[in-house]
Amino acid sequence: MKNLTGKTIFITGGSRGIGRSLAIRCGRAGANVVIAAKSADPHPILGGSIYTVAEEITAAGGNVLPLQVDVRDEQQIIHALAETADHFSGIDILVNNAGAIHLGNVQDTSLKQYDLIQAINHRATFIAAKHALPYLKKSSQAHILSFAPPINLAAHWLEQYAPYALSKYGMTLLTLGLAEELKNDDIQCNTLWPVTLINTAAVSVKIGEVAARQFSRKPEMMSDAAFAIISGACGKITGQTLLDEDALRLAGISDFSEYACSPEHANQLAKDLFVD
């Protein structure tokens, strides 16, 4: 396994949830962590900000640079990447974690909702990857990891969630395309998605706090899987659409019981979207 000490990781949307968990995990491992997210102040419902997470990373002994960034704004992304490279003398890993969710079919989705999920999901992935490439090409351990699902064209998913599926599958297609485009540049490109629901604030708001605890896993399930991928514990892989369980198994971890929010409900976990 490669060492992340001194490597610089640019995480979009890392102010809460899985992004926060991964940022702290990387900070503890000696990486330079950049939290590029919109929340400069804690969200009134979801909580968390770039500064609260930065404090947690510093407390864990990590190096951190919090940057307020709206991933829909190309110029803000360009500036944040340049500031990161200047501050930490380069960029090694890009994690496309920022995301927006809308659960509805075409008839139940407004144009405003549609535009938002497309902009924050696949469009922001395109912007960040495109402008990170000049920095990543200089790294000896370059990686682009996007939190997006394997493409599942089962009718029941498309019937219910076609707009959201398009936005997330777009991230997957971009990442697979990048893997081929960059194979001669030695830049690994992969996606990661949870098998089960992950107990983030957003999930808790949508399905209720009690249900989230009973039927979900902790964010550490995904952050540990992501860490395994970008640290090299899974081996040198590219062009893969991995589920969190598969990534952890590649890293030699097969017991997932510690990740259940409620151990007594560990056999009743709910599958995440697009996972059959």
Rank of each mutant, 00 (worst) to 15 (best):
T200A: 02
C234I: 14
E180M: 12
D70T: 08
F147E: 05
G90N: 00
S140N: 11
M1P: 13
P263D: 07
A148M: 10
L116E: 06
A251N: 10
I18L: 04
D70Y: 08
G239Y: 12
T5Q: 11
Y51F: 13
G99N: 05
I253L: 05
E74H: 03
A40Y: 15
A148T: 08
G170C: 14
R20P: 09
V53I: 11
I78Q: 01
S110M: 06
I57Y: 09
A162M: 14
I120N: 05
K218Y: 01
D41I: 15
L136V: 00
G30K: 14
G232R: 12
G17C: 04
F147I: 11
Y51I: 10
I117C: 05
N121L: 04
K130E: 01
I144S: 03
L22E: 06
V205K: 08
K218A: 02
E264G: 04
H143I: 01
N152H: 13
D86W: 04
K130R: 04
F227G: 06
L176A: 14
Q141E: 09
K112S: 10
I11T: 07
G27L: 07
L166Q: 14
T172K: 10
I229A: 05
A228Y: 05
R28K: 13
I24S: 06
D115W: 05
I144W: 01
L243K: 11
A162L: 15
G17Y: 03
L197R: 01
